[in-house]
Amino acid sequence: MDFTAVLAQIKPKLGCVSDNLTLIEEQITNAQDAGADLIIFPELALSGYFLKDLVPEVALRTDSPEIKRLIELSRGISIAIGFVEESNDYHFYNSALYLEDGAIGHLHRKVYLPTYGLFDEQRYLAHGESFRAFETKFGRFGMLICEDMWHLSASYILAMDGATTLICLSSSPARGIEGDTPGSAAAWQKLVSTTAMFLNCRVLYSNRVGFEDGVNFWGGSEYVAPSGESIVRAALLEEDVITVQVAEGALRRERIISPLMRDENLFVTMQELQRIAEKRRG
């Protein structure tokens, strides 16, 4: 079905869950008042990104008052949001929740925690172990958190699991000053567009802005159609909130024009991956 989504390109405060929750609630109210069906926040919107030893301090259980409050708000508008999740066995995950009609529709724990260059996630966080598509009011979705999307298999699995909409929550730092946009922004735009095109999926990408310890997050949240075409893109380097009209017809047409997913041979893929896995086991 057609739906209206809002990409909330916010600037969370590092380690300040209650301030961030206030900001997030404000955005939710605005989006709902404007008649949007879904609002998507960036990765770790409730906590900020370079948390280091703050991870256990800002972590929330899914039954915490803060999350319960967001679940309550999802009666009026569907919400996708990133936070640090504390599990029953006291592991801490970089997680994203999809909330709808007053319930948790899906919980994704970031599988690929970047630990190289300026990233240090694996030191502080536990990694998720699954990619699962899930049903929403707007069709079947798949959820990714930032680095997850750089692994082809992640989006592929979600698409094969029937997702026709991928939502990606991101806290992507700007680096590279040679081109018109930060090098990382250009790389992401290519990635999002290519992923959409290869998998005949629409992608809703929500990235944050602001600085943490001199590192800039570049924003540029966007809605990319299943053709790979960027339909709406938010401002670079500035807070922005964009509203996108997601048309079901565009998805249907694209899947008729280039039925890559229909023709994708899961059997061959599985057989070859199985063979490779067996060879690796020795």
């Binding site: 405060k13 000053i177 040679e178 081109g179 930060p182 602001g210 600085f211 001199g214 800039n216 380097l237």
Partner: peptide
């Protein structure tokens, strides 16, 4: 070492504005 000066200027101006005011 050629860089996009407009982008660099934006990043550095934004850095000073954000990192000064946030404290």
């Amino acid at each position: 070492l050629h860089a996009n000066m407009e982008l660099l200027r934006k990043l550095l101006v934004g850095f000073v504005r954000d990192e000064v005011r946030k404290v």
